Amino acid sequence: MTRLLIILTIAVSTSWTTIDEGKLYDNYKKAIENESTFQYFVVIHVTDVNTGQTREICTKGNFLAGAIHREYNLGYDDNSIRKAEKIAINNRTRAFKFKSLEAINNLGLDRYSMTDLKEFEATTKIDQLTGQVNKEWKMRTTDDKEMLLYAHSFFNRGILTGENDCFGGTLEFVSK
């Protein structure tokens, strides 16, 4: 009964909380434009053209760029890099269709399901934790799936996080 009450409380509180799409796009754009080894996470909607399945996923900005390079057969010269970035930035809805299996695999669609995300958010009290995140917040984990679930949940609540690829395993708040 207690668990059901917690789940209902979270469902009601999140249904009344709306994050401005402009803020989500701003965070998305920061992740796309970021060129450091500290990579920011983004949430995008991906349609696998081969199966027709669409789902929301969290991935790093540079993984999305890599998928765009693969999908559009772009190289990695300056011109191609700018073109891939432009494709991403001009996509304000963050919805992508990919046919290339290389591109799809680059995104990591198989790392977790939406059911995993819902269960994670219910058991970690993500809305309560979201209120505690500030510029000093970081979390160490060696579990990539767990990191993606936190990053996905935070992104959808307007909080941009990232992982330092040089010293992986720490999810950190990205300050303005």
Rank of each mutant, 00 (worst) to 15 (best):
R3F: 15
L5T: 13
L5F: 14
I6L: 07
I7Q: 09
L8G: 10
T9W: 09
T9S: 13
I10N: 14
V12S: 08
S13H: 09
S13N: 12
S13W: 05
S13T: 13
T14E: 14
T14A: 01
S15Q: 12
W16F: 14
T17K: 13
T18F: 04
I19F: 13
E21D: 15
D26F: 02
N27S: 07
A31Q: 01
A31P: 03
E35L: 05
E35F: 00
S36Y: 03
F38H: 02
F38E: 06
F41H: 11
F41K: 01
V42T: 14
V42G: 04
V43C: 14
I44T: 08
I44M: 05
V46N: 00
T47W: 10
T47Q: 13
D48V: 10
D48A: 10
V49H: 08
T51A: 03
G52D: 00
T54F: 12
T54Q: 14
C58M: 09
F63E: 12
F63R: 15
A65E: 00
A67R: 08
A67C: 06
I68K: 02
E71D: 05
N73S: 11
G75I: 08
Y76E: 11
D78I: 05
D78V: 02
D78L: 03
S80I: 03
A84L: 04
I87T: 14
I89F: 00
N90R: 13
R92W: 12
A95M: 02
F98K: 08
K99F: 00
L101Q: 15
L101S: 15
L101P: 02
L101N: 14
I104M: 03
N105L: 02
L107M: 04
L107Y: 00
L109T: 07
D110P: 03
M114G: 11
D116T: 04
L117W: 04
L117F: 09
K118G: 09
E119S: 13
A122K: 01
T123I: 15
T123C: 09
T124S: 15
T124M: 12
I126W: 05
L129I: 13
T130M: 03
T130I: 08
Q132A: 12
Q132K: 09
K135R: 05
W137K: 01
W137S: 02
K138A: 09
T141N: 02
D143K: 14
D143L: 08
D144Y: 10
K145V: 13
E146Q: 11
E146R: 10
A151E: 01
A151D: 01
H152W: 06
H152Y: 13
S153Q: 01
F154A: 05
E163S: 07
C166Q: 13
C166L: 10
F167L: 12
F167I: 09
F167N: 07
G168T: 05
G168R: 06
L171W: 03
E172C: 06
S175V: 10
K176A: 13
K176H: 10
